[in-house]
Amino acid sequence: MKLSKAGLMAGAVAMVAIGAGAGVASHAAVAGKTSTGFAVHTVESAPASVEAEMAFYSENFGFIPNLAGVMADSPALLKSYIATFNNLNEFGSLSPAEVNVVALAISRVNECTYCIAGHTMVGKTILPTPDDVLESLRNDEKIADKKLEALRNFSIDIYEGHGQVSPSTLRSFLRAGYDRQQALDVVAVIGWKVMSNVAGDIAEVKLDEFAKPFAWSKD
């Protein structure tokens, strides 16, 4: 995928607009803690080495998403999270919707409430994804589009097998119209989501106000 700077900005503006529609007037920049005691950093409280990453969020979104505030406590983690997204954007062979399909499929396996809401919103803005596809992913159901379903299936198989996939699983992925480069790109998207899903889980990161319209729960 290759999102232009303008495309990214438009997506971010749309996200903030959805938040405004949900009644998010302002975002108090007060450092806090999650229920499991992890720091939620602000631009001011974050380690100096992640200054650029925090600026990326405040400039594009107008505030620091809770998950970024938590990840900032581990500069290696936050830097890697943003670097991996940039790599996907710069060199990726998957389309924006395909990246979001993998991201949401993995978030659903991990039952990451923060990330499922987040990637639903992302699917309506930065990585445009059809509504019925988002719905299937949220419900852990087959996607009607056969090619995207093959992608969802392949991603879940890799993740559940800790990387071990049978030759036949890979063959069905390739037969659906994907290539070997895309198989490895899927691994990069999985890594990207391991960071947010697992950090979101252990820290019990709360939903940002602007993502509340897309809240997800298992039942």
Binding site: A76, S80, A83, T84, N87, L88, E90, F91, G92, S93, R180, Q181, Q182, A183, L184, D185, V187, A188, G191, W192
Partner: peptide, 12 residues
């Protein structure tokens, strides 16, 4: 063969 994966690995 996947610059994304190679670059991500080297970055990390």
């Amino acid at each position: 063969e996947s610059p994304v994966l190679a670059e991500a690995m080297l970055d990390l």
